[in-house]
């Protein structure tokens, strides 16, 4: 598949946003979007992990998995790569910013099982991207997730200052908000196609 990398970058941020069009990575997306600073921190961490793991997994897939003919093990191998990258990132964040480390809490190690990360890796493989495309797609996917969680956190902060019917408080209204955000992002859909 031959897509211009720049086009792919914008497509993966807007038209094929992993959260809002594929609904991947919802768990931490909902839990960490209460506070703008931690949301942005997690977005940054996800972007970092997604870019690195997609590129790394491209390399592993094309230079180890395919030559050895062990495609059926790709899930295990992708996950091992993701887990190690997250582990290293965890140590780095703890060193550089203990406050961010504490506020991300359990969701930092849980990036390991954030399906958006594995999802982007698998899309990369299914769509048969080359290395540059994979790198750009990973970066774009991460930035898209970051944009989505920061927007949601900002919207939730606004909502906090307004009276909400008791039955809609918390997660319920967040889900409705995400639905409306997804519809808004559908507006970009006609511009670029990457599927």
């Amino acid at each position: 598949m031959n897509v211009d990398p720049i086009l792919l970058l914008f497509a993966s941020i807007f038209t094929s946003n992993v959260v809002l069009t594929n609904f991947l990575g919802m768990c931490s997306y909902i839990s960490i979007s209460k506070d703008l600073v931690s949301a942005s921190g997690l977005g940054m961490a996800v972007t970092f992990v997604m870019t690195i793991t997609t590129a790394l997994n491209w390399f592993v897939y094309h230079h180890i998995i395919v030559p050895l003919n062990i495609e059926y093990l790709r899930f295990i191998i992708f996950i091992i790569v993701i887990a190690s990258v997250v582990q290293i990132l965890e140590m780095l964040i703890d060193r550089v910013s203990p406050a961010l480390y504490m506020s991300l809490g359990i969701f930092l190690p849980l990036i390991t099982v954030n399906c958006a990360i594995l999802g982007v890796t698998l899309f990369m493989q299914i769509r048969n991207y080359n290395f540059i495309q994979s790198l750009v797609y990973g970066l774009g996917g991460g930035l898209g997730w970051w944009l989505a969680i920061v927007s949601l956190a900002a919207i939730r902060k606004k909502i906090d200052n307004n009276p909400v019917p008791p039955g809609l408080k918390g997660t319920a209204l967040t889900m409705v908000t995400i639905g409306i955000m997804a519809m808004a992002f559908m507006g970009f859909a006609g511009m670029i196609r990457v599927q």
């Binding site: 180890i64 998995i65 093990l73 295990i76 191998i77």
Partner: peptide
């Protein structure tokens, strides 16, 4: 033999990196 070996080598390299 090859499949487990490949998985172990990848894990081993990553563990060493950690």
């Amino acid at each position: 033999l090859l499949a487990p070996l490949a998985v172990s080598v990848i894990s081993g390299v990553l563990a060493a990196l950690i």
